[in-house]
Design a protein around this nucleic acid. Structure first.
Length: 756
DNA sequence: GTGTCGTCCTTTTTT
DNA sequence: AGGACGACAC
């Protein structure tokens, strides 16, 4: 089992029972170490499988871990505590729902459910002006929860924060009343459950002999607290991660958790996995050089024994269109040379960049697959069906109620709904309960709806899960609605797919691991082997329906290419984390795009962008391309940019320029491209475009300014001219400065020097 | 209750 | 540019 590991990997796998931090560089065998450690603990240390807790960030990673584990040793992975933070917390809360103050069948709100709940709240709170954007409130609430802060503890120091805290409190009340829990609440509740209930806490502290954490650099503060609590300081935490690949600060990940963990727990117990088994030398050295610019790293340097390989190919084009065209030509050449399509990937910083590339791929007839986008359980028809299903367990779930009370339409319009909402507010009850107080014109229709739900709930007692889903799809009227809809075919198919998904889930639940559902029952079994789980536990088995619904919320489904399909892979750099490919194209290497200009305003934003670039570089095994465009359509406007600073942070010995290096927008030798190669967005000579043309170049006090030219300003630093207007003393230039962003300056006044 | 038009926004994303 | 959403009209 451990014979094939390198010395560092082996050391990590066979560490004694103490906290440890494994700094695992990209491609250094991180997952392998993690799973082998688990296998080693079970086999060599005789640790029972159910005394291990392994936590990951994605369901995919959890599944991968279990699959690899089963390959290492014969093992029944059912009932093992391997899953995502949210999945495991869900499990804790279902098992101890009473102590957590929840219904056993509590519903989980996903991001969009949460947003609509907040919108509803704002409306009923009478916040009519758009003073508080729902998204802003949502972000505030989630941030507080991720810090473990309840409404009463929010530090409200001004009107804004007091209002936010107030909205947070109301939102929380609303969730309580409806019996729903959002993603952050899963973690916070589970944390509080352990914190406030000594018996339960001690039970789990005793129960777990080892805690293993994957992607530790992505933990947020609450997750770290949760781990600390569960460990009680004595259960060893084996944390694996790479601070250089921390790219999720924007959603609360705290990179400092790694350093804190080392300082507080794993001091002297840090193992570095620095041998990279993925990339050739040029690629790896480039990545090392780039990331070495970051400060405060825990520090490591990847190496490979695979040889230098090929240098990174760099191509600069005049526009995003030409960049895409060049990409396609190059990809075609690769395919002609026998490269497998799904081993070729195009990465980009932001999703908007994919359109041009997709268009070019499509025109060239190359099959491609875009990662990201809508996932199965996020589709509207699926969410509608799920909303009906949610009402069966809990008709007081107002979010679900409002979603489908008039979908398909059944004559319960906005007016009726408003009246009902008001009634519910006055009686402090759910919409469902408020129906009995309703005496308006649409009362009969409301009663019909209530009856429909009751009738479905009755069927839930007699039908199995897939039958029930089918029944609901039909009797809700969803099926008929989409049958009548001329564009409803896909949606109908998806609804049919939902029935299939339910069947698969029901079948697997009996035979295989699922984070909720039958596992709770098994958990009790295991618990009884060593000691009873504290607290009154009378209902152990979660209904298949409730289990299926939590599955739908916690695992929104794949958004990956279907297996077996050989297609070029397109995705954001974020989405590429954890993946690897023979050939990688990183596109859009321009300042303002990558690093993204918005990041410059954020604390440590540039360093996070650099880590992102590091992740991008280290995806490639053998061949790596970097492309950039001097101009690009962004938000409907052509924008000119400088080369990304990241490009200059890679030593030139690793780069091979395929385009003439001096054609850069960075130089002042900007020349208008020939009209034939431009596709309409660019200013053209003559005709209606004359005005635009006049503004491409301006002469002020002997200096010739042109769009795309690099200039330097004594205060703002280096930048690129993106627009010119006026002439003589009126002449103005919009300049994108590398460090301070866009400014509009009067050319007659600003002390600008042309960079040569 | 549905369809249309105008306005706004636009980094990254999992659970 | 293009999508999402809300206001307004039929």
């Amino acid at each position: 089992m451990i014979e094939q590991l390198n010395p560092q990997q082996r050391q990590a796998v066979t560490l004694p029972d103490s906290h440890a931090l494994v700094l695992a560089g990209a491609g250094s065998g991180k997952t392998r170490v993690l799973t082998t450690r688990m296998a080693w603990l079970m086999q060599q240390q005789q640790i029972s499988p159910h005394r291990l807790l392994a936590v990951t960030f994605t369901n995919k990673a959890a599944r991968e871990m279990l699959a690899r584990l089963s390959a290492l040793l014969p093992l029944d992975t059912r009932g093992m505590w391997v899953g995502t933070f949210h999945g495991l917390c869900n499990r804790l809360l279902r098992a101890h729902h009473r102590d957590a103050g929840l219904l056993q069948t509590f519903q989980i709100l996903d991001v969009s459910d949460q947003l609509s709940a907040i919108k509803r709240l704002l409306k009923s709170a009478g916040i009519t002006d758009d003073q508080y954007a729902p998204r802003e409130v949502q972000r505030f609430i989630n941030r507080q929860k991720e810090e473990g802060v309840r409404p009463a503890q929010v530090s409200a120091y001004d009107a804004y924060s007091r209002n936010m805290a107030d909205l947070y409190a109301r939102y929380q009340d609303q969730c309580e009343r409806e019996g729903v829990v959002d993603f952050a609440e899963l973690l916070l509740r589970a944390y509080e459950l352990l914190k406030n209930n000594q018996a339960i806490r001690e039970h789990y502290q005793r129960r777990f002999a080892h805690i293993l954490v994957d992607e530790f650099q992505d933990t947020n503060n609450l997750q770290y607290l949760w781990l600390q609590l569960l460990s009680g300081g004595s259960t060893p935490i084996f944390a694996v991660g790479d601070d250089d690949q921390s790219i999720y600060a924007f959603r609360g990940a705290n990179i400092h958790n790694m350093a804190d963990f080392e300082r507080d727990y794993a001091k002297g117990n840090v193992i570095r996995l620095e041998q990279n088994y993925r990339s050739h030398g040029h690629i790896l050295d480039a990545a090392n050089a780039l990331i070495s610019q970051n400060t405060g790293r825990l520090g490591k340097n990847l190496w490979t024994d695979q040889g230098a390989g090929e240098p990174i190919r760099v191509y600069e084009s005049a526009s995003d269109q030409l960049e895409a065209q060049w990409l396609i030509d190059e990809i075609k050449a690769l395919v002609r040379d026998g490269h497998i399509k799904h081993e070729i990937t195009v990465l980009y910083r932001s999703n908007a960049q994919s359109r041009v590339i997709e268009h070019a791929l499509f025109s060239a007839g190359l099959p491609y697959k875009v990662y990201g986008g809508l996932r199965f359980f996020e589709r509207q028809e699926i969410k509608h069906a799920l909303a009906y299903l949610r009402l069966l367990d809990n008709p007081n779930d107002d979010t679900a109620w409002l979603r489908v009370v008039n979908f398909p339409t059944r004559g319960i319009g906005a007016r009726t709904q408003e009246q009902l909402i008001e009634l519910a507010q006055n009686h402090n009850c759910s919409l469902h309960e408020a129906v009995s107080y309703f005496d308006g014109r649409s009362g009969a229709r409301l009663l019909d709806f209530v009856q429909l739900i009751q009738q479905m709930a009755h069927q839930a007692q007699v039908l199995n899960l897939p039958e029930l889903v089918e029944y609901v799809v039909k009797h809700s009227g969803l099926k008929a609605h989409y049958q009548d809809d001329k564009d409803g075919l896909d949606r109908l198919e998806n609804l049919q797919e939902l029935v299939t998904a339910a069947a698969v889930f029901a079948a697997e639940e009996g035979a295989q691991t699922h984070p909720a559902g039958r596992l709770i029952e098994r958990e009790i079994d295991y618990g009884l082997q060593d000691e009873p789980i504290p607290g009154p536990q009378t209902e152990f088995l979660l209904s298949p329906l409730a289990a299926f619904l939590s599955h739908a919320s916690l695992e929104a489904g794949d958004n990956q290419a279907e297996r077996g399909e050989d297609a070029i892979q397109l995705m954001t750099v974020h989405a590429a984390k954890g993946l690897e490919f023979d050939s990688v194209f990183i596109s859009g290497l321009e300042d303002g795009l990558f690093p993204h200009e918005n990041s410059l305003n954020e604390r440590d934003g540039l360093e996070e962008e650099r880590r992102l670039m590091y992740v991008a570089l280290t995806r490639a095994r053998k061949r790596l391309y970097i492309t950039l465009a001097q101009s690009r359509m962004i938000h409907g406007k052509t924008r000119f940019s400088m080369r990304s600073r990241f490009l200059s942070e890679i030593p030139s010995k690793h780069l091979k320029w395929l385009s003439p290096k001096e054609s850069s927008a960075f130089s002042n030798r900007y020349t208008m491209p020939s009209g034939a190669t431009w596709r309409g967005q660019m200013p053209r000579h003559g005709g209606a475009q004359a005005n635009t043309l006049a503004n491409v170049g301006v002469e002020v006090s002997g200096k010739h300014f042109r769009v795309g030219m690099g200039v330097t300003h004594p205060k703002f630093g280096d930048g690129t001219i993106t627009r010119l207007s006026g002439s003589g003393p009126e002449a103005q230039a919009e300049i994108h400065f590398r460090d301070v962003g866009a400014k509009t300056l009067a050319l007659g006044i600003a002390k600008l020097d042309i960079i040569t």
